[in-house]
Write a protein that binds this DNA or RNA. Structure first.
Lengths: 341, 341
DNA sequence: ATTCCGAATGTAAACGCTTTCACTGTCGGA
DNA sequence: TCCGACAGTGAAAGCGTTTACATTCGGAAT
């Protein structure tokens, strides 16, 4: 297991050529005769040689690796994003170095530095919580972007080497809220998970829709839940508490489908008929929306398309092309059983 | 953005010491006076220097990186596994190189080679589908284990540098099936997702339990679904088809919670009361189990503990300790609303 | 026949770090 | 006063590639 790892020298010796030639066939660059190439290839096969990526990286100063940062890979949504990125990057000959940072700024910074020292060729920040409302907190992103291109999923930030892709969350929620109001519901709660930057965008969408409909929104209509994204019961109990405290509501707009699902659980427990007495709209159009019964009307934020866009942009940037800084898609309301029409 | 990346030489110059000394403070190894250390640290801070991991890796022949292989990071279960691994590895000073391989053998092999050439210090194969029932197909694992320790999650394989952690799937399903039978249900379907090796273990557990109860199991009671792990409706329609073809059943033992959830949907659609007329038991005790209504009785296979075990074993192996080859935990049936007692 | 060119190959420097070894200077003990 | 031990530091040899540059050689053009 230790006994002298086989290097390019061993191959060169075995094949009776110089290491330069071996390197050439390895990278199948020009000017190697077929017979030499065959000799080298045989030697490689015989020894089971694998080139040392460090050495290669040292020479090339790139390892064809993209760093993917996400707060929590077990989050349903982020997990999917990672999947898309990983797949598309691999198709382009890049590997993915994954860092789950958690939600603390300090840890995000540390992860970014780590990726930079590992000489990633680019960085994807997967999730809107990487950019902060307080501009100063985003310095770590700007610093990173001085070294490598930075791709932002679901967030916007202006910078010379920063690219982003997102859907128009404000508009999506605005529309969803408006439609819920139009279907006759006035007492609506916006249920946020509080850790997402786009969450505040969404919240504004909600508020604006209410205001434009002439409805007042009080602070308590803005419920939020800041715990694990998995504990449905805990989420539901948040709503129960609010109801017990006197808040009355017959509709919930949720920042993600887990929250929406908890709202469904809440409503059923209360004995409301859905959607006749109570409507729910979720976000992300994830698997959870259809796991629920009744199945949840949800906003599709086009994750796959966003990831795709971000990857092709990144590839473009890396090959020196000029690329658009920002792509904004429109979300789409997918109607299911928790809304009337 | 290109202008001469700062190296250890720049620091040494700026601090007025040799590169050896800089290296020493970088690795805070012994014998550097406080005053020199301070000078170096200042120079580092001033320049924003980050050591080049390639060069370091070349010298050390390790980059403190563990390769994590998984078929599909968007799979709820695997995503959680990745999360646990990533977290625990980071705590031990290791980074994670993630490869989503898909389910094809060829791609798994490619991914393994890639990780080896990237000089990972160890490899985690997260998911039972990495080991095949046909022994020859597992050669790629043996080959990998000649270079680095290989950790297997949810699968067993004997080899000199191979370590595994899993729960006793056979026993868990055997018990679950037996209890369902005891509660009076005889017509049970085992619903498998066909791509998992542990799936066949579970299937055996089911068969054995049936046999030991004196019940015959026909081929059609072994339903399976081989599509995306997300499409609940598609899964349910598999059951509907079976029913339409004349199969009558009042219980489902499922290989994962998504399948179980689809069984719940099926039963509700059929008008069966759960659990009075129809019972369902899922696997993994995931979020989906509680998303369902009624909530699903499911087998907890102790994922976090398994991941933990695997990581600490790996750390042990890497530091040269002798470690147990195999750890087998017991699953636990978590009772909810889809089973009577 | 001579010149010149390009294809095929080799030589050696460079990449940025770690680490062994050697060297200097200080200090305590004999 | 001399010696040995030892802390602090530097010089230089790797580590395994890539690649610019040098070399060789056969054949086309003159």
């Amino acid at each position: 297991m230790k006994e002298h790892t086989v290097t390019i020298y061993d191959i060169s010796e075995k094949a009776g050529v110089s290491i330069a030639t071996v390197s050439r066939v390895l990278n199948n660059s020009s000017n190697v005769s077929d017979v030499t190439k065959a000799k080298v290839l045989n030697a490689i096969k015989a020894t089971g040689y694998t080139p040392n990526a460090f050495a290669r990286g040292l020479g090339l100063n790139t390892m064809k690796t993209i760093g993917i940062l996400c707060a929590d890979s077990s989050d349903l949504y982020l997990a999917k994003a990672i999947y898309f990125f990983e797949e598309q990057l691999r198709e382009n000959g890049y590997d993915s170095l994954l860092c789950c940072t958690g939600y603390a700024l300090k840890d995000k910074k540390a992860a970014v530095n780590l990726l930079i020292s590992k000489k990633v060729d680019g960085m994807i920040l997967a999730g809107s919580h990487f950019v902060y409302p307080d501009a100063g907190d985003n310095n770590y992103i700007f610093e990173a972007s001085e070294k490598v291109p930075v791709m932002l999923l679901n967030a916007e930030l202006e910078g010379s080497n920063i690219y982003c892709a997102c859907t128009d969350d404000h508009k999506s929620i605005y529309k969803a809220t408006s439609e819920m109001i139009a279907s006759g519901i006035k007492d609506i709660v916006y249920f946020n998970n509080a850790r997402s930057y786009s969450g505040s965008l969404k919240e504004r969408g909600f508020k604006d829709a209410m205001k434009d409909a002439g409805l007042e929104v009080t602070e308590r209509q803005l419920q939020f839940y800041d715990g694990s994204g998995e504990d449905i019961h805990e989420m539901a109990s948040r709503l129960e508490k609010a109801a017990a405290a006197g808040l009355s509501f017959r509709g919930v707009i949720a920042a993600d489908d887990a929250l929406a699902l908890s709202a469904v659980k809440y409503a059923k427990k209360k004995g409301y008929r859905i959607p006749e007495d109570f409507e729910v709209i979720g976000y992300n159009d994830s698997m959870l929306a259809v796991c629920s019964d009744p199945e949840i009307t949800s906003i599709d934020n086009k994750l796959e398309e966003l990831c795709q866009k971000l990857t092709t942009t990144l590839m473009g940037v890396l090959s020196g092309e000029e690329m658009p800084k920002k792509t904004i898609l429109s979300g789409e309301l997918v109607r299911r059983q928790t809304t009337r029409n």
